[in-house]
């Protein structure tokens, strides 16, 4: 049971609508593309509407509008924020040069979070973790050494630009194949992941909707 719909009339109706929506989407498999396209557009409309709803209800009203209305004197700094928010909302209709301050703040902030997170959160800890633990603390030293070798070769392949020397080029070539194999392994996980979604959807139709599945 997916449990999102209740047992009351509204819940039963939601289950029926959900089942019909599922069948409409899957009608694509029989070549009924028109219905599938319409369902995709409905999904786009609902998802965008939901995003706008959250942006207004959970962010812009409580964090910007309410403080400005209730305590305008204490929240003077929110006035320029209001202007920038207004500019971004109407970005499609405003001249591009007016958007420079907004773009600057977004680029600066996003780049700084990406840089800090990538270096401190991924690159440094993962390099440290790639090194085999020495002594009795390591339960699988051979595995760790193999893993380190694969990491190094994949990294070399990933960052390798112009070939420099035969050995490096060959190592990068091996790394490239390891990378392709790694992506293949990930695709195996993806296939199983997507299959579980398909099986769950079938179970929804049989269990929640037709109630023939226990």
């Amino acid at each position: 049971m997916n449990g999102f719909a209740g047992a009351d009339l509204a819940g039963t109706l939601a289950t029926w609508v959900a089942a019909l929506a599922t069948i409409a989407v899957w009608s694509y498999l029989t070549g009924a593309r028109r219905l599938f396209v319409l369902m995709q557009h409905l999904l786009a409309g609902l998802a965008t509407g939901y995003l706008v709803l959250l942006a207004i209800r959970d962010v812009l009203v409580p964090r910007l509008a309410v403080p400005l209305i209730e305590h305008p004197a204490d929240r003077v700094l929110l006035v320029p924020a209001l202007v920038l928010v207004g500019m971004l909302v109407g970005a499609s209709w405003l001249p591009r040069r007016l958007m420079a301050p907004v773009a600057g703040i977004l680029v600066g902030g996003i780049a700084a979070y990406a840089l800090g997170g990538a270096v401190v959160g991924t690159v440094l800890p993962q390099i440290a973790a790639a090194l085999p633990t020495t002594g009795a603390a390591s339960p699988d030293l051979v595995g760790e050494v193999i893993s380190l070798a694969i990491t190094s070769l994949v990294l070399l392949a990933f960052l390798h630009g112009t070939p420099r020397g035969r050995l490096t080029t060959r190592a990068a070539g091996v790394g490239r194949w390891l990378l392709v194999g790694g992506i293949g392994g990930w695709l195996g996980f993806l296939v199983v992941s997507r299959l579980s979604l398909l099986v769950d959807r079938v179970a929804f139709l049989l269990g929640d909707w037709l109630t023939v599945l226990r």
Partner: peptide
């Protein structure tokens, strides 16, 4: 979470549930 929160709050315990395709 690891990159943004874990780096700023290193003592916080982060556990995760993720779909299979995110495992690797």
């Amino acid at each position: 979470w690891v990159e943004q929160v874990g780096t700023r709050l290193p003592g916080l315990s982060l556990v995760a549930i993720a779909p299979t395709f995110l495992d690797p």
